[in-house]
């Protein structure tokens, strides 16, 4: 029973950072129609912001996380301006360019920090007990931050005027620009938010995963599974699918092993693709 609880707590932690990453990927896809293959590398860059600012330069952890969020957001804006905007009517081109960009980010990380794992000391040693399961404050912090950030994003999208413009662009870019919504402006903001979410996920989890320059690979696979299961283009679906996937993956990892868990996750995605290509929660029909 204890093991079950502990696994559930671990899965909640996994779900929270996976949701941040997947929601960012969906934001980018929704507004720009581009699958950002470099999303895992944005996570990696966020993690290395913490490695550099917190572990090496000993700034406070929170400051390093905030810096990671902003910096990766600007990397996203850079990607939008240099690659995705010129390739707006060429989705495959955008995908290929993002593959090129991920190679560049990986190499830069190797140059800056070497190939080996960056070690990040925990920012706090505290932990709490929930029904016999242990939750370290470091992990609790990730869960709280994810909930707060996603709530803030939800409020921004549903309540603010700019959020409505953003959703309009995601639904129909042409009609939106006919209403005077600037496509470039919206794309820039969406890219900032999407990238910053991946970056902050990397920054928050850096002390827990000890990043390498190649960590993005497993992240992007996870993110793809989640957005397919949740329905490409659905933010709520991405959050729910992140929870489902995190629980399935964590439980299979605990009771079988990690490779089997990956196979199960991919099979889940394939099954969803075959039976319900719009995802479990994507109501929108896509051609």
């Amino acid at each position: 029973m204890d093991l079950l609880w502990q696994t559930a707590v671990n899965a909640t932690y996994a779900a929270s950072y996976m949701a941040l990453i997947a929601v960012g990927l969906v934001m980018i896809f929704g507004v720009m129609g581009v699958i950002n293959f470099a999303h895992g590398e944005l996570y990696m860059v966020g993690a290395y912001c913490v490695v550099f600012l917190y572990a090496q330069e000993t700034f406070p952890f929170l400051l390093a996380v905030a810096a990671g969020l902003v910096f990766v957001g600007f990397v996203g804006i850079f990607m939008e301006r240099t690659m995705f905007r010129p390739l707006r009517d060429n989705p495959l081109g955008g995908l290929i360019a993002s593959i090129g960009f991920l190679l560049i980010l990986q190499t830069l990380a190797v140059f800056g920090f070497g190939r080996r794992m960056g070690h990040v000391p925990p920012s706090t040693q505290g932990k709490m007990e929930i029904f016999g399961a242990i939750l370290t404050y470091q992990r609790l912090f990730v869960i709280v931050a994810a909930v707060l950030l996603l709530a803030a994003l939800w409020a921004f999208l549903k309540r603010s005027k700019f959020g409505r413009a953003l959703r309009a662009c995601a639904q129909d870019a042409e009609a939106a620009s006919l209403q005077g919504i600037s496509m470039n402006q919206t794309a820039r903001v969406a890219m900032f938010i999407g990238a910053a979410l991946a970056g902050v996920a990397g920054a928050l989890t850096a002390p827990l995963v000890n990043p390498t320059p190649y960590i993005g690979h497993s992240i992007i696979v996870t993110a793809f599974i989640i957005i397919i299961v949740g329905g490409v283009g659905s933010l709520e679906g991405a959050v729910i699918a992140a929870v489902i996937y995190a629980f399935v993956h964590t439980f299979v990892t605990t009771f079988f092993d990690g490779v089997i868990a990956n196979i199960v996750g991919l099979a889940l995605m394939l099954a969803v693709l075959v039976t319900r290509p719009t995802g479990l929660f994507g109501a929108k029909e896509r051609a």
Binding site: M83, L87, I96, I99, F101
Partner: peptide, 20 residues
Amino acid sequence: DTARPLIYGAILILSVLYLP
């Protein structure tokens, strides 16, 4: 040697942008 993926990536981006 270490810079090879970077140059590969740059070639990829440039060719998509300028030699579609």
